[in-house]
Nucleic acid binder design. Structure first.
Lengths: 161, 161
DNA sequence: TTGAAGAAGATGCAAACGCATGAACTTAGG
DNA sequence: CCTAAGTTCATGCGTTTGCATCTTCTTCAA
C-alpha cells in the first residue's frame, strides 16, 4: 500500500536530515580544519561564492545561525583579519562584507582539503547520474523555500492563532 | 563541457546543505515549538523511532551534537521528566535511554504540527515521484557513511600528514 | 514634510556548546 | 589471570549561541 503524500514528504525530509547529520559528523571528525570551525568555514565559503560584498542578512539566509550569533561571528572574523566590514554606501543601517586576502586564502586552503572528503563521501554512495539528480532535487527544495520568505507569502493561510 | 565527478559531488553536497539550511530556518521560524528546542526535539524524535531503550552513543550518530553536549542535553531532558535513563544491565559503563510517557506525549504533540510544515515545504517543491527519489538518494548517502565509521575504514589511505 | 512602522545590526545576559580530561568499565594479548 | 588499550559517559572551563531589546536608519502614508 502506497504511503500518503504527506508521509512521503516527511520520510524524504527525514532521510535528508539523516544524511546531513552523518556526513557532517564525518567531516567534523577530519583533522583538517586548523583554527577555523565548520560554522566559520561556512561563512567564509558563502562569502567566497559571491563576488562582490554582501550584506549580513544575505549571509544569514544560507548560514544556520541566529542574527546575533552571525553578527558576533563576523565581528570575530573581522578581528582575525579574515573578513572586511564596510559601511553600506546606499543603506545607512547596512554593512557590506567581503573576504580579505587572508580570508580568501584560508577558504581556499581549507576548502581544497574539504572538497576531497566531500567528493569521497558522495562518490562512495552515488553514481554520477545520481549526483545530478540529488543536486536538482535539493535545488528545487531550496528554491521553493526562498520564494516564500522573500515574498512574505508564509502567512498565506495563517493556520491557527 | 561536463563537470568532473568530484565537482559534481561537491555541487550536490552544497545543494543539500543549502536546502537543509533554508528549510531549517523556515521551520525554526514557526511558532510551534513550545518550550522544546529543535535540537531537543531531534533527540525526542530519534528516541521515538527506536522502540526499545537505546544507548547515548547510538543517539549521537544521528544527532549533530558533541558527546558532552548530548550527555548534558539528556540530563536536562531527564530532569524535565521527558526521558528515562537507566543503567545498562549488560555493559556496566553504558546507559539506556527511553522516552517517558510525558516525553512521548511531547514528541507526538510537536511532531504532529511539525509534520504539517515539513509536508507543506516539500510538497511545494517536489512531486511524489521526486520525493521518492530524494529519499532513496539520501538513504544511500547516509548508508555509505555508516559503514565507514563502523568498520574503521576511514583511514583507508590516510592522505597527507 | 513628518511621524509611525519596519528593517538592519549590535549588545546584555543566561543557557548551551565544544574541547580536554577524568572516572568507570570492558576487551584483548601475553 | 592480569595488565594495557579501548570504550562509554560525565565534568571543568572557556567560548559561542539564542532571546530579548536597543539604536540607527529607511520607508511610506497622511
Amino acid at each position: 500500500m502506497a504511503r500518503s503524500e504527506s508521509r512521503l514528504a516527511n520520510d524524504a525530509w527525514e532521510a535528508l536530515l539523516t544524511a546531513h547529520a552523518r556526513l557532517m559528523k564525518g567531516f567534523a571528525a577530519e583533522d583538517m580544519w586548523d583554527d577555523i570551525s565548520m560554522r566559520e568555514y561556512d561563512v567564509l565559503y558563502t562569502l567566497s561564492k559571491h563576488d562582490g560584498p554582501i550584506r549580513p542578512v544575505e549571509l544569514g539566509r544560507d548560514v544556520l545561525l541566529s542574527q546575533p550569533a552571525l553578527s558576533r561571528m563576523v565581528e570575530r572574523l573581522v578581528d582575525r583579519g579574515l573578513v572586511a566590514r564596510a559601511a553600506d554606501p546606499v543603506d545607512g543601517r547596512g554593512v557590506r562584507l567581503s573576504l580579505t586576502e587572508a580570508g580568501r586564502g584560508a577558504q581556499r586552503r581549507i576548502g581544497g582539503r574539504h572538497a576531497v572528503d566531500v567528493s569521497r563521501a558522495v562518490k562512495r554512495a552515488l553514481t554520477e547520474s545520481e549526483m545530478h539528480q540529488l543536486e536538482a532535487l535539493c535545488r528545487k527544495l531550496a528554491a521553493g523555500e526562498r520564494l516564500i520568505q522573500d515574498d512574505h507569502f508564509k502567512s498565506e493561510q495563517e493556520p491557527q492563532r
